[in-house]
Design a protein around this nucleic acid. Sequence first.
DNA 1: ATAGTAATGAGAATGAATCTCATTATACGA
DNA 2: TCGTATAATGAGATTCATTCTCATTACTAT
Lengths: 140, 140
Amino acid sequence: MSEENEWSEYAARLIADAGLRRSTPRQRVIELLAEQSCAITALQIDAALDGVGRATVYRAIEQLEELGLVHKVDLGGSAFGYEKLEPSGHHHHHIVCDDCGKVEPFEDEALEDAIHDIHRKGFKLETHEVTLHGHCADCS
Amino acid sequence: MSEENEWSEYAARLIADAGLRRSTPRQRVIELLAEQSCAITALQIDAALDGVGRATVYRAIEQLEELGLVHKVDLGGSAFGYEKLEPSGHHHHHIVCDDCGKVEPFEDEALEDAIHDIHRKGFKLETHEVTLHGHCADCS
DNA sequence: ATAGTAATGAGAATGAATCTCATTATACGA
DNA sequence: TCGTATAATGAGATTCATTCTCATTACTAT
């Protein structure tokens, strides 16, 4: 099974388990998010899905976030980006060019290890977000 | 010299080097940022400084950011936070409770080491931001 | 002191995100 | 399958952080 389908079926299951209905608009948001390999903004989703209202897009994202299916990331632009959270835990972080706004995903095992070694009394840690800032080759 | 004064004098120097004038409103923004031990929003700065216009606060922050004196952080709320960047490079990251919004700073040497070992071809890295998300003791 | 111009503040404008509420569609029991 | 309860939706209004405009003020160098 492709990773996209895996995630969207996983999402459908958690939605059902939460007692929410399987509505077409929400399903379309899920499928669009499933196709992305990196973050996408709420307004991009809204623009991509004709016939799905903006409010529905934001509501769907909010629910998916609460279920731990989607992660909000600040990529330096004017709007937030959202990306799916694989049930496997596999994920990437981002490098942002502060000049042109270009975003590139990256993965680093040592970084993940260091983060998982962090424990803070009184906090149950769930997710984390790492963003590296700098200048890309074109802007240097 | 206290760390606050160190930073605000460093900031004043970079402002001057950039050919900008030493204006009272901008100086007050710098001093307020210098006093903070963690992030503060633009509107909090605006509210704290009577007689300093909102536009001036945002403009000052923007300039300080460009000079590498201030760092913007997304702490999950509706507005961004800003905090001073010590010339020594000494800094902290943040743990956010996704339920109540509480923010706590933390430092971790192993994490910093792992980040400094990351190199990405075609990118000149400058700063980084790490945010851990979870639930605090009160919300668990 | 004065001229040149960076900087400011009040308020308007923008734009992402949220809210409202009348309408529609889904799930579930009969 | 039908009917009902109610979750979910969409259009548009609203909120609120941030940015822009522009006439006025105040640094700075001469």
